[in-house]
Amino acid sequence: MVKRAGQAGGQSDRLLGLEHEHQNPFAGITWDINAVRNYFQGPPNNWDAQTIEWNILRKISPGEVKGTNWDPNSVMEYAFGAGLIVEPAAYRAGLQPKGGLSAADKTWIVESYPGTAPTQKIPELEVGLSQKLALRAGETRVFDFAPKISRTYSIATFGSADTLMVLFEVRSGGNVQIGGDDDSGSDRNAKIDMRLIRGRRYQIGIRLYYAQMAAETAVMVW
């Protein structure tokens, strides 16, 4: 598990400090760089060299993270096809995470919560109204949401971005994570579908890893 050290802000910021797991400086991954570039330059990603470097090849500096051993089943790990990873040899035929939060993910979240409440007023999402994110890579925004009726809601980001989105229920003892999605640089956006209860409060945290048009990235609940 690799997480960004020294995150400012509230507890949602700290959780969203999680970085892409294959960029863990302790992972020991050796890439076939030409194969990686050839793959991600093609569909469905169609990434340029800068995006590939930021999302795949770049290693987080050991001095900037609180790092542990590589967790290939982390929610923050991409899936990779055969021929992209040279080392460790066990992943030359490809890497496919199990999906969802791994045991290490859950341990980190439990250790991080409850935390101190944010001091800055958090904007509130309204059903059917989008909110622009206008984030630079690595930045985070947190939104409140109070459903007026109990039903299943969809919460999603829109635009050209690589985002991690996490959904919390606000409780007196501290926020509890109840959902999350990482679009993992694929040709889609982060989305959570969840039944939410009238009278309870929720928070949605969104962290942007890379955005070519950050001003056009938005979040909406419906």
Results as ranks from 00 to 15, higher is better:
P44W: 10
P114T: 02
K148V: 07
I52C: 02
A104V: 01
E77T: 12
S150E: 01
E77M: 15
G99S: 09
D105M: 10
I155N: 01
T119V: 10
A93V: 02
P72Y: 04
A103Y: 01
F80Y: 10
L125Q: 10
P72F: 01
F145N: 07
G67Q: 09
A137T: 03
S150Y: 04
T119W: 02
I29T: 13
Y113F: 10
R92M: 11
L95A: 01
N24H: 06
L101F: 14
A82D: 05
D105I: 06
S154F: 06
A156C: 05
A79P: 11
A89G: 07
G81S: 06
D71F: 05
E21S: 11
R136Y: 13
A137W: 05
R151M: 14
N55K: 03
P44H: 10
F143W: 06
K148Q: 13
Y113C: 08
N46G: 15
P97Q: 07
Q96C: 09
N73Y: 04
E111D: 15
I52T: 03
M76G: 09
K59I: 08
E87F: 00
F143R: 01
N34W: 00
Q120Y: 12
A117K: 09
G99M: 04
T68W: 11
P118D: 06
E87A: 12
I56Y: 06
I56D: 00
N38Q: 14
F145D: 04
P72T: 01
R136I: 08
K106E: 04
Q50W: 01
R136W: 10
A49N: 13
W31G: 09
T107P: 01
G99T: 02
D105W: 06
G100P: 10
K132N: 14
I56N: 04
N38R: 15
A82W: 04
T30I: 14
E64R: 03
V65N: 06
G67Y: 03
V127T: 09
A103H: 02
P62Y: 00
T68R: 15
P43W: 07
V65H: 07
E87D: 12
D48E: 00
Y39F: 15
P43D: 13
I33Q: 14
R37T: 12
Y153A: 05
L129G: 09
I33K: 15
I149V: 15
K98M: 14
G115P: 04
L125P: 12
G67P: 10
W47D: 01
A137P: 05
A103C: 01
I33L: 10
G83P: 10
A49T: 10
Q50K: 09
I60T: 03
T152Q: 13
I122M: 13
A156Y: 08
E53T: 05
T116S: 12
K98F: 10
L133G: 04
A104Y: 05
G94Y: 03
K148H: 08
I149F: 12
V142P: 02
I29E: 02
N34R: 09
T51D: 03
T30E: 11
W70L: 05
V75P: 00
R37E: 02
T51R: 14
F80A: 06
F143D: 00
E139T: 02
L135S: 07
F40L: 08
V110R: 12
D32G: 03
L84M: 07
Y39E: 13
F40Y: 15
L57K: 03
G28W: 13
T30R: 12
R141A: 13
A93I: 01
G115M: 04
W54L: 07
W31Q: 09
S74V: 03
